[in-house]
């Protein structure tokens, strides 16, 4: 389990350090697949119907379906890389390190209780959610923001599976949020068909403000 957590935290740095959108999608897909393995280790019941559904469902959605949709959305678009990030890549990685340190410090400070059997997984959840928020704030391309949102939602999913099994509402909520990501992506696809704007930069949305 610690192995999985390390892999996920390290791939977060790749996510923060890359400017290429396709790489971003690929890393997100990889994280989704790894995350799908996590429930088998955290849930006390091990290989049960419930964990298989959560794990396999998570893998299928986060690791396969959404990356495919995102790639499709990118097809035929000139955007290959983040042109003008609000925060540079080196600074982003530094921020990622700070986030990870903070997350694991908080995880260590969580008092032991039956509700949180795996404090490291809670740390991972915080880390993923914070990286997701950071990506949304620091990037301007829509695809990067969706990946950020996906990360945030991965954090919620991870938090859900870190809890004891009864509290599955968070996991279910996570799956629902996944569907929302799907809708986001569909929106971009439609947005492109319409070709109202020339790029998919979210700065363009500023014209919508009141």
């Amino acid at each position: 389990m610690s192995m999985l957590i390390v892999v996920l935290v390290v791939s977060n740095f790749f996510l923060l350090g890359t400017s290429r959108l396709r790489a971003l999608i690929r890393i997100a897909a990889f994280e989704g697949l790894v995350l799908g393995l996590l429930p088998f280790f955290t849930q006390a019941e091990g290989f049960s119907f419930h964990t298989v559904i959560i794990g396999a469902g998570g893998m299928l959605l986060k690791g396969v379906a959404i990356p495919l949709l995102l790639n499709r959305a990118l097809r035929g678009v000139e955007a290959y890389r983040e042109e003008k990030p609000r925060v540079g890549y080196t600074t982003s990685i530094a921020a990622g390190i700070a986030i990870s340190v903070l997350a694991f410090w908080i995880g260590a400070a969580i008092p032991r209780s039956p509700l949180f059997p795996n404090p490291q997984v809670v740390s991972l959840a915080l880390c993923l959610a914070a990286v997701g928020l950071f990506l949304i704030v620091a990037r301007t391309e829509t695809v990067s923001q969706i990946v950020g949102y996906l990360m945030l939602e991965n954090g919620i999913y991870t938090f859900g599976i870190s809890l004891s099994a009864q509290q599955s509402v968070l996991v279910e909520m996570g799956v629902l949020l996944d569907l929302l990501v799907g809708v986001f992506i569909m929106c971009i696809v439609i947005y492109h068909i319409n070709r109202q704007f020339e790029s998919i930069n979210t700065e363009e949305l500023e014209v919508l403000k009141e």
């Binding site: 609000r86 301007t140 923001q145 979210t202 500023e206």
Partner: peptide
């Protein structure tokens, strides 16, 4: 309310 989603997040 500047209109930037990044700022809201």
């Amino acid at each position: 309310q500047g209109g930037k989603t990044q700022a809201y997040v």
